[in-house]
Design a protein around this nucleic acid. Structure first.
Length: 383
DNA sequence: CATACGTGGGA
DNA sequence: TTCCCAAGTAT
């Protein structure tokens, strides 16, 4: 049995007694039925947003590039975290053209610790496309935005509405939660089809003249009041319109499939030492932590297996491997149980197709290293 | 459609 | 400790 309980026989569709005046027949001729039929909730929401919204740096600008960067950083990432990165990134890469002509390594370095590094790689690649094919101007068109790497359904709608006033609902996790509760919808919000449905619902309410404020207001409501746990319904400007509140469904909506169990991987990493310097290895461009620097290592439990793996994959020969400690690092989908070794290098040719750097401890901050390896550097006494 | 892809905070 | 969750996208 999953988190959704038994059959999906939850209340669905019939939650309302009437239809929004503007609701129209959708593609298949099926009317969208929902309970919150009073469109007055939109003005309540906009009024609340006007007075209570947070003052965030990307709300001070109308520069599409700056809005673009903020939306990429905010993907799956909390505002508090983005605030630590966004000003630095904009200061270092203030325009699309400057970003496009900067080395990827510099972009990854600024992104270090923020996670989901494909975002940084895609943003950089998209900047080169915008610079070359759009004269450095982000296109003001949903389909053209959607065609850029790293910009999906949500982000295209967010940029389009905020930067260009295009009336398209931006349905992120906040908006999905708000929509599920406000309209009493029992669909699994983890399914893409649900997000499409929610987008169609919101499309009937999005104000043509203020789509950006509307989208941000919905998300802000989800971030500040309509919380996943312990939502602050008494403070909510939409409490009188909310189906879930009226029917006491707040605790069960939104419905979501439970996450798969995390895989546990035993990994060893080595501080390969030679004349006061340590060897860093650049991970392959694609995949987990792609393009970032690491201490050479592998998913092998025993010291002997790790030694032979490093010899085989990278051409590294080591003297005695001394254990310097261990720690765990959790990702969404897996957990690394990492043992850290120190070993002197036996000089010899390294595997030529891989990228390496010999660094002194003082140079470590110049390299983009993910959070997963920072405890290792500490255990090795580097930095 | 399901899964890979980071990190840090909170319960 | 463990799990959930966050301004999702690519494949």
């Amino acid at each position: 049995m999953n988190a959704l309980g038994g059959a999906m026989a939850g209340p669905n569709q019939h939650a309302g007694t009437s239809r929004h005046p503007n609701s129209n027949l959708q593609g298949g001729g099926v009317p969208i039925l929902h309970a919150s039929t009073d469109p007055k909730w939109v003005q309540h929401l906009l009024d609340w947003y006007q007075c209570c919204r947070r003052d965030l740096p990307w709300r001070d600008t109308d520069d599409p590039y700056a809005i673009w960067v903020s939306e990429i950083m905010l993907q799956q990432t909390r505002v508090d975290t983005v605030l630590r990165y966004y000003p630095r990134f904009i200061a270092r890469f203030p325009t699309t053209d400057i970003l496009a002509h900067s080395p990827l390594d510099a972009v990854l370095h600024t992104w270090q610790g923020l996670g989901y590094y494909a975002r940084a790689r895609n943003l950089h690649r998209a900047a080169t496309i915008v610079s070359r094919e759009h004269q450095g101007h982000l296109p003001a068109d949903i389909r053209a935005l959607r065609a850029l790497p790293g910009i999906g359904t949500y982000t295209a709608a967010a940029i389009g509405s905020i930067a260009y006033g295009i009336p398209r609902p931006a349905v992120d996790a906040n908006a999905a939660r708000v929509t599920a509760r406000l309209f009493g919808r029992w669909e699994d919000v983890g399914k893409p089809s649900t997000l499409r449905t929610f987008c169609e619902i919101l499309e009937q309410y999005i104000p043509p003249l203020h789509p950006g404020d509307f989208n941000q207001a919905v998300m802000e409501l989800g971030a500040l009041l309509c919380l996943p746990q312990n939502p602050r319904c008494p403070d909510c400007p939409l409490v009188g319109f909310c189906v879930a509140n009226r029917r006491q469904w707040i605790g069960v909506l939104p419905r979501k499939q439970r996450r798969r169990a995390v895989e546990i991987v035993t990994r060893g990493v080595v501080g390969v030492h030679h004349h006061g310097q340590y060897l860093l290895h650049r991970r392959p461009e694609r995949g987990l932590l792609g393009g970032l620097w690491e201490f050479p290592g592998g998913d092998h439990g025993t010291k002997a297996a790790l030694r032979s793996m490093l010899t085989k994959s990278l051409g590294i020969h080591l003297k005695d491997m001394l254990c310097r400690g261990s720690y765990s690092h959790s990702f969404t989908h897996l957990r690394w149980d990492i043992t850290v070794y120190h070993a002197d290098w036996v000089p010899g040719p390294l595997h030529p197709v891989e990228a390496y750097a010999w660094i002194s401890p003082a140079e470590l901050p110049d390299y983009a290293m993910p959070s997963a390896f920072l405890p290792a550097s500490k255990l090795l006494g580097i930095q």
